[in-house]
């Protein structure tokens, strides 16, 4: 037996074999629902939008003629007589990441066909999104009205700071807001029992993909805007 030549099929590791057989199969390349495949492709495209925004921001930040504002000073929150840097943004990030947790729980209970639990968990996720956007509005109004930061200029340093900040966090906030509407729609449909009738909860996972993506993008914005 051992003298027999090893075929290509046997010589490749299992994961690679799976990949090869997936790509060379007919009908479907990925054994997932069309909506899930489409969401993944959309997210790849959306990654390039955020990637372009962030690279543009980094390029300008490196080449601008005036120094960049000191972010830990600009984003500080004045609490109890002391400036605490990054306090608000830490809370926002915590809430958004927690909402990803509830979303993941919703996906699991969706596959277990627990109608009410799934619906409530999705609504909880959406609530996290609302809280995030609300706090972002608070942050924006603080920056605009108290510190006088405008898209075209500010008193702390380079003019581009305000422009990039409002543009990128605004674009992300738009994603969160759309996500809240999307999740609420799904939650209502879950609670109405539509997916019980279809016997198919995969749409919860598709919505979850979007939500996790928005969350992941925030980590990058957080790192590049607030920590750098």
């Amino acid at each position: 037996m051992s003298s027999q030549p090893v075929s290509f099929e046997e010589s490749v590791p299992d994961n690679l074999k799976g990949l090869v057989s997936d790509w060379s199969s007919d009908v479907q390349t990925f054994k997932v629902r069309w909506s899930k495949a489409m969401m993944w492709i959309f997210l790849v495209s959306d990654t390039f939008i955020f990637g372009s925004f962030l690279s543009a921001y980094m390029a300008v930040r490196l080449t601008t003629t005036e120094p960049w504002p000191n972010t830990s000073e600009v984003f500080a929150l004045h609490v109890g007589g002391a400036d605490i840097p990054l306090l608000l943004i830490a809370i926002m990030t915590f809430i958004l990441i927690s909402s990803s947790g509830t979303m993941a729980m919703a996906v699991t209970s969706g596959y277990k066909k627990q109608r009410v639990r799934t619906g409530v968990l999705i609504l909880l996720t959406a609530l996290g999104g609302v809280a995030f956007v609300g706090m972002q509005m608070f942050e924006w109004s603080k920056l605009i009205f108290e510190e006088g930061i405008r898209p075209w200029g500010n008193d702390f340093g380079a003019d581009q700071f305000g422009g990039f900040f409002f543009m990128i966090t605004g674009f992300h906030g738009l994603h969160v807001s759309i996500g809240v509407i999307y999740l609420t729609t799904i939650a209502v449909r879950v609670l109405q029992g539509r997916y019980d009738r279809l016997d198919d909860y995969q749409i919860v996972e598709v919505a979850g993909l979007y939500w996790h993506f928005v969350d992941l993008v925030w980590i990058f914005i957080f790192a590049f805007f607030y920590l750098w």
């Binding site: 492709i41 790849v44 495209s45 959306d46 390039f48 939008i49 990637g51 372009s52 925004f53 543009a56 300008v60 003629t65 898209p151 075209w152 003019d159 581009q160 305000g162 422009g163 990039f164 543009m167």
Partner: peptide, 28 residues
């Protein structure tokens, strides 16, 4: 799908430069 995002971002920033007088692409 991967290339148009860069144009979208450029277009949005250029609109801001024109309407809000931000200075993404504008030197002194």
């Amino acid at each position: 799908l991967l290339a148009f995002p860069a144009l979208l971002v450029g277009a949005i920033m250029l609109i801001f430069d024109r309407v809000l007088e931000t200075s993404f692409f504008m030197p002194e």
